[in-house]
Design a protein around this nucleic acid. Sequence first.
DNA 1: GCCCATTAAGTTGCGCACAATTAAATAGAG
DNA 2: CTCTATTTAATTGTGCGCAACTTAATGGGC
Lengths: 142, 142
Amino acid sequence: MNPLALEAQMCFPLYAAARAMQRAYRPLLTELGLSYPQYLTMLVLWERDGMPVNAIGTRLHLDSGTLTPLLKRLERRGVIERRRRAEDERVVEVYLTEEGHQLREQAEQVPLQLLCKVDLPREDVAELRTTLTELLARLESA
Amino acid sequence: MNPLALEAQMCFPLYAAARAMQRAYRPLLTELGLSYPQYLTMLVLWERDGMPVNAIGTRLHLDSGTLTPLLKRLERRGVIERRRRAEDERVVEVYLTEEGHQLREQAEQVPLQLLCKVDLPREDVAELRTTLTELLARLESA
DNA sequence: GCCCATTAAGTTGCGCACAATTAAATAGAG
DNA sequence: CTCTATTTAATTGTGCGCAACTTAATGGGC
């Protein structure tokens, strides 16, 4: 087979599936008033509130060039607050507002709704998740 | 486990791995003078030359809002030409230039180089590709 | 032939990603 | 204590992705 064929490679299905996933999330997230990357950022903050921009970036593999404007939009949206750390003025810590905390309850339903849309066997999903995480690790280290 | 945890969901590994893949491709594609989506577009054209914008879009799941400026950049780059179809002036057909054809030979090496970077067992890659294609199909139909 | 629905590309506007650079604060060597 | 290197965000510029809309050409009903 042609080694350059779209379907012969892993990269295109990965690219296409990632975008299709975002499209599947979009209607659900629109109800929350969040974009997909904003939703991921909120997931991080719901896990641990008050994280520095830096730490959020490490978690999501994003840099300040992406996060700074994204966080400003989340702040305008009213779900977070950005505060300079008093002991080290370089660091900006990100805190959930009351509205940000409340939004979590609405968000709880999202993952299940999504899984229904996908309708893949539970174990296939788990295995895909594992393999992708493995792939990610190898790509990061290379 | 917290259902909203990043690692509990499939969406984040998919998002992160897709971006890590693009980062892994970047240095290889920079040598060809192409971005990642431009490379995918060239893959489509190397398979079949002279495709209408529309058909390229179907193949890559992209619309004219993305493709039109991308194709203009590929044209400036000198690897393609855009020509209106004579029998139907609505259609723009995309043709490889001589340079575009030649670029294919350089590109032939890219997929293998990438697989080396990833260094996953051959059958894992094949299975991942299959599962992602399946996932894509289900997301598209939903 | 005329009108209207359809189809194809292009345009506009916004929000990521990411490279490269800048600005500001801190830490550490001497 | 001072000077320099490091760390952290922010800024700038480019190229996607995609929704919404516009423009232009075609086709089909009458």
